[in-house]
Simulated assay, not measured.
Amino acid sequence: MTTRSRSQHQRRKRIVRAAAELAARGGVEAMQMRTVAERAGVALGTLYRYFPSKLDLVVAVVSEEIDLLENSIERRPPEASTPPERAVDILMRATRGLMREPELADALIRSLIMAEVQTPFGERMTGLLLRVSADGLTLEQASEEQLDLAGSLASVWMQELLEMLRGRRTYDQIQRRIETAASHLLSGIQRKSDPSGSSLRWTPR
């Protein structure tokens, strides 16, 4: 990475961090572009070059949360023996991570659920569920049915998390509902062994 690209990367990280800090204190409403720029120490025009809209900022903050989740999984892969149990493991890890900053989590989830534009959040969560539950299966390798199953579970989790943030669910209730959904959706999603007979289990990238 060149000095210039490293500087750009650090500037982008600083902007995302500033946006997350503001959202954690006042929700998406607090993520005013000018305020984010001031907090990050960049010009407003610079901010718009990196993130043309507030939704782009929201997506970037969410992507960083998923990065943290993936890093956690790489350090400590789920040890459960069945696809549903492995999926529940990572979804509850994600829940605990997001709930450390409930204001931020509420702002992000509400924005993504209500957004009228496509964001990569659902696709990334679907891909993560496939990798851990279907023995390393990727989005490109998955069948349409497998994509639908993993995507449906990701959608259930997002909706249940929103209910928890609204005070309508407890952590234990979410876990029970996720376990029920996973057992129905992913019980048959496991990837077949390769021709040599070895199991294609998920491994860190």
Rank of each mutant, 00 (worst) to 15 (best):
M1A: 11
R4Q: 15
S5I: 14
Q8D: 12
H9M: 13
Q10R: 15
K13N: 10
R14E: 14
V16L: 02
R17M: 03
A20E: 06
A20I: 04
A20G: 06
A20C: 01
L22E: 02
A23R: 01
A23F: 01
G26C: 05
G27R: 06
M31W: 01
Q32R: 08
M33L: 14
M33E: 02
T35C: 04
V36C: 04
A37P: 02
A37L: 03
A43I: 06
L44I: 06
L44K: 09
P52I: 07
P52V: 05
D56T: 06
L57M: 14
V58P: 04
V61N: 06
S63R: 14
E64P: 00
E64H: 13
E65M: 07
I66C: 01
L68T: 13
L68W: 08
L69P: 12
L69H: 10
L69W: 09
I73M: 11
P77S: 13
P78T: 09
P83F: 01
P83I: 09
P83E: 08
P84C: 14
R86K: 15
R86Y: 08
I90G: 04
M92Q: 09
M92L: 12
A94N: 09
R96T: 10
G97L: 07
L98C: 00
L98E: 01
R100W: 00
A107N: 03
A107M: 04
A115Y: 03
V117K: 08
Q118L: 04
T119A: 06
R124N: 00
G127N: 07
S133Y: 02
T138Y: 03
T138P: 07
Q141W: 07
A142Q: 04
E144G: 07
E145W: 11
Q146A: 13
D148G: 11
L149P: 00
L149M: 13
S152Q: 11
S152E: 11
A154P: 05
V156I: 08
V156K: 02
W157R: 02
Q159I: 08
E160M: 10
L162D: 12
E163A: 12
R166K: 12
R166D: 13
G167C: 10
Y171V: 10
I174Q: 10
R176W: 05
E179D: 11
A181W: 09
A182I: 08
L185Y: 08
L186G: 10
L186V: 12
L186N: 10
G188Q: 14
G188I: 10
R191I: 09
K192D: 14
K192Y: 00
K192R: 13
S193I: 08
S193Y: 13
D194E: 14
G197S: 12
T203N: 09
T203A: 10
T203Y: 09
